[in-house]
Amino acid sequence: MNSHRILDHPVLGKLTIEKEIPFTFDGKKYTGYEGDTIASALLAQGIRTLRVHEESGSPRGIYCNIGHCFECRVTVDGTPGIRACLTELNPDMIIESGKQQFSPFKSTENQDDLPRTYAEFEKQLKGEKEDEPDV
């Protein structure tokens, strides 16, 4: 537990732990330290994937750690879109990772994808025109 902590530092000295803070992430119990952000408490446990991309499902973790990239957004006590890197860990927080969303307008494999952008739409339109048999 907390095996990724830097306990001793040649310049900054020993890590002083004032208080342990219990929390859960995706239903599992963990302990962080006072002064932790959600992101640092999770990373200290070796947890790196905080969410997956809503559409593609590609895994994501902290990137900028200063609140700009929003890659670390998690659901905290039912509130979605909370930046793990800027949010102080509080006792008994219930933290959940971001999940993949249904994409009802995305076709399944073996079918033509619907255009996602205007550029794709134009590309498909051009493709269709080329395929049209000459009358």
Binding site: L50, G61, Y63, C64, I66
Partner: peptide, 11 residues
């Protein structure tokens, strides 16, 4: 975009 990749400032 893989978890474990971060900006140097984050580290």
């Amino acid at each position: 975009t893989l978890p474990g990749v971060m900006s140097i400032g984050a580290a």
